[in-house]
Simulated assay, not measured.
Amino acid sequence: MAVPWLGPLQEVAIKRLVLWNIDLTLVDVAIVTRDAYAEAFRAVTGRPMLKLAPARGRPDSEIVFETLAVNGIVTEDDTLPRFLSALAMAFADRRKRLATEGRAMAGAKEALKAVAKLDGVVQSVLTGTIKSNAVHKLRAFGLEKYIDFELGGYGEEVYPKASLLQVAQGRAKTRFGEPFTMANTVVIGDSTRDVQAAKIGGAAMIGVASGRSMAGELREAGADLVLPDLSNASEVVAAVAGLTAPSGRKPVSP
C-alpha cells in the first residue's frame, strides 16, 4: 500500500517511525472536545454531564468510563461503544469550530513538515483520541497531510498507550516488512503518560513541555530528550534523527 503523500520510491526507503501525540502536542481543541463529550453523554444517558473526567494523557475509553462513574451512571456491555459512536458524531458536528475555537500548537505544522523530509521517515499518531476525531483535529489546521493515519494507535482500541505503541509498530512492520523497535521508533508527546508508554512499549521518547507536564517532570519520567515546544523545527528534526535510525543501523546519540 502506498503512502498517499510519498512516491513509491520513497516508500521503499521508509524505516523510521515517528508517532505524535495530538492534544497539547500538535493542537489544543479542549473547548470543542468538552462540548462534544457533553452532547455524547446526554445522548447516551439522557442526563446532562455534570463533570468531565480529566484527560491526563489517557485514551477516550478511560475518560468515558470515569466520566460515567463520577456522574453516577452504571455502565452496561454496550455503553462504551455507544458513547464512542455518539462522541464521533458530536465531534463531527462541531468540526467547523475547531479552527476558530482551537489552535495549532506553536511550530506544529513546521515541525511536521520538516520531519517529513528526514530520510526514511513515516509519521503517524499515538493518541487517546478516537480515530475519526483525530483526523478532524489535524485536518482543521492543515496537519493531516503529513500523517499516515492507518499506522496509528487510537483511543477506541481500548489499550493502554504502551500497547497501542506496539500495535502501531506492528502495523508499520506489516506495511513495510521491517521491524520497528526502540532503535527506529520515536514517540513525541507532552505528558508523562506518553513517556511511560514509550518506555514500556519500546520506543525512544521526545518530551515537549507544551502541555500537561513540565520539562522536569518529563525528564524525571525518562524522556530521552525534552524540548520546550515545537517552535524550532530544526531542533525537532535533530532530535528525531539522533534517536532513530533506519533499520539495521545504530542510532546516533544526540
Rank of each mutant, 00 (worst) to 15 (best):
Q10D: 15
D93Y: 01
G107D: 03
E178F: 15
V237T: 07
A38K: 10
V27D: 05
S234R: 15
R171W: 05
E217Q: 14
V12T: 09
F176W: 10
P81I: 12
N184P: 06
A53Q: 01
A239M: 03
K109C: 08
A162F: 03
R171Q: 09
V29M: 02
M205N: 01
A104S: 13
A99W: 05
I14L: 14
L87N: 00
F41T: 04
E150M: 06
S213M: 04
R34T: 03
L19F: 08
S247H: 12
E235A: 12
L151I: 09
T100Q: 13
V122Y: 03
T79A: 03
L164F: 08
K109W: 09
G152W: 04
D224P: 08
E76I: 00
V115D: 08
L126F: 04
K96W: 14
L52M: 15
Q169T: 04
V240M: 08
M214D: 14
S132M: 04
L87V: 01
A69M: 01
V195C: 12
A106C: 00
V3R: 09
P160I: 07
D77Y: 11
V12L: 15
L6V: 00
G153F: 15
S253W: 02
A209N: 10
G152E: 02
I147W: 04
N184F: 02
G102I: 10
A183M: 05
W20Q: 10
D148A: 09
R94W: 14
A183E: 12
E39I: 14
L52N: 11
D78R: 03
P54M: 06
A221S: 06
L227E: 13
T127L: 00
S210R: 00
V64A: 13
G46E: 13
D78F: 02
Q10R: 13
A38F: 08
V158G: 01
I14R: 13
F180Y: 14
A183I: 00
R34N: 04
A241V: 03
V240Q: 13
D190W: 00
L26V: 02
A69F: 03
V27T: 11
G207Q: 01
R34G: 02
R94Q: 14
R139W: 02
A197L: 12
V167A: 12
A53V: 02
E66T: 07
L98S: 03
V195I: 14
G207S: 02
D229F: 10
L24A: 01
L218M: 09
G211V: 04
P59H: 11
A55K: 00
A168W: 07
R212K: 02
G153R: 07
G189K: 03
A162Y: 08
N232G: 09
T127D: 07
T45S: 14
A172T: 05
P251K: 05
A239W: 00
K109Q: 14
A2I: 02
V158N: 10
T192V: 15
M1L: 07
V125P: 09
F141L: 09
H136S: 06
I206E: 04
G72W: 10
F91E: 15
S231N: 06
V237F: 06
S132G: 08
P160K: 14
T100R: 13
A36L: 10
G248N: 06
L243E: 08
A134W: 08
L118I: 00
P179F: 12
R34I: 00
T33A: 15
G72Y: 08
Y37D: 07
T244S: 15
Q169F: 03
A111T: 09
S85Y: 04
F176M: 06
G153N: 13
G152K: 01
E62F: 05
A116E: 11
V3W: 11
